[in-house]
Design a protein around this nucleic acid. Structure first.
Lengths: 328, 328
DNA sequence: GTCGGTCCTGTAAACGATTACAAGAACGAT
DNA sequence: ATCGTTCTTGTAATCGTTTACAGGACCGAC
């Protein structure tokens, strides 16, 4: 006893398949027709087949979210926001991990041509010409959550890390700190380069010299710990980390070295993830709006699916600073 | 200029559509045939349509993972593990949030009949007869990550919380703590009931009396903080929390109350999430194997898709204790 | 030379829905 | 009574694949 099809419903209701389809899709029909079809549907437990429907209407009602690592808290926040918007709009969410390589990202974007989803939100860790080309040529709408050149002509949504850096530096300066160091993740990534530049500019704006810059192997807690020694070498009185995981990793090293946070060294993270609130001492962190970015990326994608001819938008989410006890 | 179809490729290669399909699926064909088809595919940039393929072969090469909240770290760990296994097997992962209500879970399971995915891993927060019935009747294979009765006749994979509780209590007792309190999440959830029972049994096994049990509103950090006062009322010298988020929330309250961890109060969490390592002091936590559960759930599902007649397995993942500095 | 068997390829029928089009019913206006 | 309009319903084509089946080529064996 396999699943009933629309033909079975039609037979059981004594009407045509077209009528069944129409009733199911809310097109005009007589009271009696609706009644008969619904009864047959009930009786047989009919559920329309998504595969057949997709083929015919050319849409799957699925959207893809591609991130480098589903475990990173900042992506988790984004994902949760995207999922919320997307499912409220009646779409399902396909989550894909691209890994850190740009070639995998390109393969993913190209693969969208298979039509298994109606759109893509991608947050690329690394960007090159190939990727931009593949995005521009992609068969389905793409929204980039991250930094790609305007000439790519694609909807983008990104954080304003320079501004965020400025907030962090301003805050530290206002608290009397002047020997500010920077703990970055890999500099060859999109956020890595953006934040390095932002840090340099922010210091310049305050006529300060950098108290040292360290490049961690990765944007992870473990990498943050591993870099602790290098960061401390220059005896900073404050450290800004490129994300919360690095900041927390560093704080563990500071504690191990017998240094007080914020007494001896103030620490500022970025992303304002839940970890910032949960760690100890709670971490002052630059909120780069990851939830908002996720939400708006999803909205942008839905809007473009509705109207593919609208001119590409480039949205920048403004940062704010969540001050907690890791700074004086 | 819309996407080329298999018919276009066939025309361009001067062969039949069947031959193109065969070459693409690696069925036997002459050298020359393969050559011609591949050239045409290259030339036109042909990519097969997943929707049409799904309809014909009756499989989508997608699997669904349903959890209550994609933001909860324990689900994130599971999801990452599931994603890894699933994508290695050539499947895509659809992630769905069910919310805390069992009716939504039932609706989800029923909805699988639409055939948009070939299988489902569900981790239900609450279980009732309806849910079990819907799972048993589901059109596609289902693996439950959680606790459902054996009579449901479905593949399950679950943690052994009683054993985990025993590990936690043993550890605390061996460190000389005897006034052990328990901070639970909502008791009407699957993990909530399991852990409450586990705690009671573990104490009994050590001939101890409970130093108080508190039920937090939710399995969250905020709920853990909010319950801090209630937990302390009975002056315990150790607290076991039903998950890491609750434990960390509690630790913040302890710090605010001027109590030292582990000096005054030892704290043990459950799940051994990354947060346990990252918080301060690092949290002793019962590893309930969420990554392994995710991995094995995915493997179980893939195996059942291969062979739908195999007898249902019920796998229990054994816990271990990660001792860190929140206990003496 | 004929017959079988083995390969390879092509034709056409699915898969299960949606939808353009046509046909029929009902109705009011003339 | 006839015609035209509107509204509802049914027939059949279609989406882009896969695959059962049949036809033809080729080969070796008798």
């Amino acid at each position: 006893m396999s699943r009933p099809t629309i033909a079975g419903v039609a037979r059981s209701a004594g009407v045509s398949v077209a009528s069944v389809s129409r009733v199911l899709n809310g097109l005009p029909a007589t009271e009696e027709m609706v009644e008969r079809v619904q009864r047959a549907v009930q009786e047989l437990g009919y559920v329309p087949d998504a595969r057949a429907r997709s083929l015919k209407v050319g849409r799957t009602f699925q959207l893809t979210l591609a991130v480098a690592d589903v475990g990173n808290p900042v992506y988790v926040t984004m994902m949760r926001a995207v999922e919320e918007v997307v499912s409220a709009a009646g779409y399902r969410l396909v989550v894909t991990t691209t890994g850190p390589d740009v070639v995998d990202e390109v393969a993913l974007v190209r693969g969208m041509a298979r039509g298994y989803a109606d759109g893509l939100v991608i947050s690329p860790l690394r960007v090159d010409e190939d990727l931009i080309k593949s995005i521009r040529e992609c068969e389905v709408p793409v929204v980039v959550a991250g930094n790609v050149p305007a000439k790519a002509g694609v909807d983008t949504i990104r954080a304003n890390s320079p501004k965020g850096m400025l907030l962090a530096v301003e805050h530290l300066v206002s608290r009397g700190r002047t020997r500010i160091a920077f703990l970055n993740g890999p500099a060859d990534t999109v956020p890595g380069t953006a934040r390095a530049k932002g840090f340099a500019d922010a210091l310049k704006a305050h006529h300060l010299k950098s108290a040292g810059e360290t490049e961690a192997m990765d944007f992870t807690f473990a990498a943050g710990r591993a870099s602790g020694g290098a960061v401390l070498r220059s005896k900073p009185d404050a450290v800004i980390a490129a994300n919360d995981l690095l900041a927390v990793g560093l704080m563990h090293e500071l504690a191990a070295a017998g240094l007080d946070v914020p007494g001896d060294v103030a620490v500022v993270g970025m992303d304002d993830s839940e970890l910032a609130e949960q760690c100890f001492p709670p971490l002052t962190s630059v909120n780069l709006g990851s939830a908002e970015r996720g939400r708006r990326a999803a909205e942008l994608l839905l809007a473009r699916i509705e109207d593919s001819s609208r001119t590409p938008r480039r949205i920048v989410v403004q940062p704010s600073l969540s001050v907690r006890r890791s700074t004086p």
